[in-house]
């Protein structure tokens, strides 16, 4: 907690916009590597999987922000919207890699797969769930919807995250470690929200909402 208290003033001074600027780096870097042949023997799968994995990593990061505040006192809330928007952008790029590069724009087979293949269906649903979240990730929408309705809407993040992890797990043959680790991390971060808060943390939270008297 003390460490966090010393860190928080620094975090307050870091601007948010570099997240959006830095977000361009991984996709551009991956495309560059794919173009010059350093993404390995199958650049299509490499691009597609890396974009999906990056999106999943950002989703885990977004879900970690509330538990980090509650249990470590670290306030990263300012960065959450940017991380969420970037994760959505990566999900869209992951989808485009699949549709254009992997499926070669065979729209009929692609549409059939979305309906028939459970892992693709899950991925598609997760993407659709994220659309309203991305569209309302701005101050105007928060004002328009009101904070309560806006937060209720944004709880769609939880099913979207679980579906994304299942989408990964269902795709692979056998039981490799990575997809299980992502699903485990997401479920753990969601479970932390359900735990009763420790008395000290509750007091601290109350203090921070009501302010010093």
């Amino acid at each position: 907690m003390q460490f966090a208290q010393r860190l928080n003033p620094f975090l307050r001074r870091i601007p948010v916009w570099p997240i959006y600027a830095l977000a361009f780096v991984p996709p551009v870097w991956l495309l560059w590597q794919a173009a010059n042949g350093s993404l390995g023997v199958d650049p299509v799968k490499a691009l597609e999987h890396r974009m999906g994995e990056l999106a999943l990593q950002l989703i885990v990061a977004v879900l970690a922000i509330t538990p980090l505040r509650r249990y470590a006192g670290l306030s990263l809330l300012r960065f959450r919207r940017a991380l969420g928007v970037v994760s959505f952008a990566y999900v869209v790029l992951h989808f485009l890699c699949w549709l254009v590069l992997d499926m070669g724009l065979l729209i009929q087979q692609a549409a059939g797969d979305v309906l028939k293949r459970p892992y693709i269906t899950l991925g598609a649903v997760a993407l659709l769930l994220m659309v309203p979240l991305a569209l309302t990730s701005n101050d105007w929408s928060v004002r328009r919807l009101g904070a309560a309705r806006w937060s209720r809407l944004h709880r769609l993040t939880y099913p979207a995250a679980i579906l994304a992890a299942l989408h990964y797990l269902w795709l692979v043959k056998a039981w490799p470690v990575e997809p299980i680790a992502y699903l485990g991390a997401i479920l753990a971060l969601l479970a932390l929200r359900k735990l009763p808060r420790a008395p000290a943390a509750r007091a601290a939270a109350q203090l921070s909402t009501t302010g010093p008297r």
Binding site: Q109, R117, P118
Partner: peptide, 10 residues
């Protein structure tokens, strides 16, 4: 879990 109708040539 997936179609076998087509393939990608590595």
């Amino acid at each position: 879990r997936w179609s076998q109708a087509s393939e990608r040539r590595i």
